[in-house]
């Protein structure tokens, strides 16, 4: 197989990981909590889209279905934050870790109840078509994944730089208490961050389900996205995306060139390597705790 072909497929996969990682990083930056349920949120969003769009579901037009699913997931994430996470404000990080893991399990269970445990595929208008450049086949789905990711990341960037909410989020992530004092509604803001990360999760889920199949256990993909986020540096948005791309590209290459089994381990091996060499990730701002 052409290495370039592997690369293209890997990039598209990497975009999905990158989007997921972006969700982690968003929440981490704003509230210093890590959302271990991000993968399951992705799975949930994908299933919602699936039942809205597919022929044996509500059979809505693709765009409409996706928009409804995104909105629903945003609301769901907002409510999750408001009812569960917010109660742990200021509690040790350990609590939030355990809580989000548990939330992930519950989401997985609910998804299993509603949609069953069989892998399902999302019907998309761009499935099965492809462009060919010489020996390289570029699927429409791959192109859509890459383009959507780039648009989303650009949009988020503008959101953080130019909107009031975005600026307030930046303030929050720098110093929560100070943000309180200047009148930023910190609690509502962290709900909004969750909603935003729910949106990115859903988009990641749609892209993922469009390229392959999805089942309730797909949420475990989140762990790979963790590796991506760590590789890029947990506090950096562009880092998350690039970490995702690295993981996405390494996987098929390892699958093709290394003995079986190694491709599963490769992303984590890279992550551990990065942690040893540069503990705070590739794109990190390093400083020291002040005493």
């Amino acid at each position: 197989m052409d290495p370039l072909q592997l690369l293209v497929g890997g990039l598209a996969n990497g975009c999905v990981y990158g989007l997921l990682a972006l969700g982690f990083v968003l929440i981490y930056k704003a509230t210093e909590a890590v959302n271990f349920a991000q993968g399951d949120m992705m799975m949930f969003g994908a299933f919602m889209t699936l039942s809205l769009v597919n022929q044996d579901g509500y059979n809505l037009p693709f765009g409409v279905g996706v928009c409804i699913a995104i909105a629903a997931m945003a609301v769901l994430s907002y409510v999750l934050e408001m009812t569960f996470i917010r109660r742990l404000f200021g509690q040790p990080q350990f609590s939030v870790v355990v809580l989000t893991i548990a939330l992930g399990f519950v989401l997985r269970f609910i998804a299993g109840l509603i949609w069953g445990h069989e892998p399902q595929s999302l019907e998309t208008p761009f499935a099965g078509r492809a462009l060919t450049f010489g020996s390289i086949v570029l699927g429409y789905d791959d192109i859509v994944v890459i383009v959507v990711t780039l648009l989303l990341v650009g949009g988020l960037y503008l959101f953080f730089i130019y909107t009031r909410v975005g600026l307030a989020m930046q303030a929050c992530s720098q110093n929560q208490l100070a943000a309180y004092y200047v009148g930023i509604p910190v609690k509502r803001l962290s709900s909004i961050v969750w909603a935003v990360s729910g949106v990115t999760a859903t988009i990641a889920g749609v892209l993922f389900a469009a390229k392959g199949t999805i089942d309730p256990a797909s949420g475990l993909l989140g762990i790979k996205a963790f590796a991506a986020a760590v590789i890029g540096g947990f506090g950096s948005l562009p880092g998350a995306l690039i970490g995702g791309l690295i993981v996405g590209v390494v996987e098929p290459l390892a699958q093709f060139y290394a003995p079986t089994g190694y491709s599963q381990i490769a992303p984590y091996a890279i992550m551990l390597l990065v942690l040893v060499v540069r503990p705070a990730g590739i794109f990190s701002q390093v400083a020291q705790k002040k005493v």
């Binding site: 981490y28 890590v34 271990f36 990080q93 870790v97 762990i223 963790f226 590796a227 986020a229 760590v230 947990f234 984590y268 992550m271 551990l272 942690l275 040893v276 503990p279 705070a280």
Partner: peptide, 16 residues
């Protein structure tokens, strides 16, 4: 190696 990681990084490394 994991020692150099604090809090959340350690959690993720062990999760991996």
């Amino acid at each position: 190696p994991a020692l150099r990681l604090t809090g959340i990084y350690l959690a993720i490394a062990t999760l991996a």
